[in-house]
């Protein structure tokens, strides 16, 4: 046991050398009738050595390190909770503890159900965030909108973190993919890119840019009626 602990002490030297990389991918598949599917993926694979090392410790920087079971339990709890929310169905999740990749996917009756869901989750985890995006789909006009307004609160809250905690986000990426059944005729956010078949739109940005308000993810997408 003693030796094991010594080993862990040496593992502690590892995190010093790496900036952590991770990516968050948000994918929404919208159908004409307003229903759809959402897939959220968190990929920590690039930092897997570091995470594997961290998971051998009890705590890091004063935060308790959860073990595999605890993480799985938390995911299961969230899945069960999502399933009971209005308009949400088919909730499924996967968690790969070798590569540290996890995703959660569900179907929604209306994209506004997603707005409620995000709000409920943030409240549950006591995240005080004022700038969560809200989605809207207007069936008659065939128009999809994501409204995102940056609030300085985020930056303020972020700045309250210690430097070593801030560093966790320094090389993190956010990818948003929106998919439709019909062709996109126009879209407002020039940072986004449209696919060759004109039915999908992608936006990729660095999470620090999102935190500091340098990037905007609002978009108004007009589909062919």
């Amino acid at each position: 046991m003693f030796k094991n602990r010594l080993f862990v002490i040496f593992l502690l030297t590892i995190p010093v050398f790496f900036t952590s990389c991770f990516e968050v991918i948000e994918e929404i598949i919208m159908r004409k009738d307003g229903t759809g599917t959402m897939v959220l993926t968190v990929n920590l694979s690039q930092s897997k050595t570091r995470i594997a090392a961290i998971m051998l410790m009890d705590s890091i920087h004063g935060y308790k390190v959860p073990d595999k079971q605890e993480i799985q339990q938390e995911i299961d709890k969230t899945v069960a909770q999502l399933g009971s929310m209005p308009g949400i169905s088919n909730v499924r999740s996967t968690a790969d503890f070798t590569n540290f990749v996890g995703d959660i996917r569900f179907s929604f009756r209306d994209v506004s159900d997603v707005n409620h869901l995000i709000k409920a989750l943030l409240e549950q985890y006591k995240v005080k965030s004022t700038n969560i995006p809200t989605y809207n789909y207007n069936k008659e006009d065939a128009r999809f909108t994501r409204v995102y307004s940056y609030s300085n609160d985020v930056r303020t809250q972020f700045n309250q973190l210690k430097d070593r905690d801030k560093e966790v986000f320094s090389a993190a990426a956010y990818v948003s993919i929106l998919r439709f059944e019909t062709i996109i005729t126009s879209y407002s956010n020039k940072l986004a890119r449209i696919s060759k078949n004109q039915q999908a739109i992608i936006q990729r940005l660095a999470i620090p840019d999102l935190i500091n308000g340098r990037a905007n993810i609002s978009n108004q997408i007009q589909l062919l009626k």
Binding site: E23, I25, V101, S195, K196, A200, I201, I202
Partner: peptide, 12 residues
Amino acid sequence: YQTYVYDENYER
């Protein structure tokens, strides 16, 4: 490490 590539229609 595992990551994703996207094709021309952004299928990952």
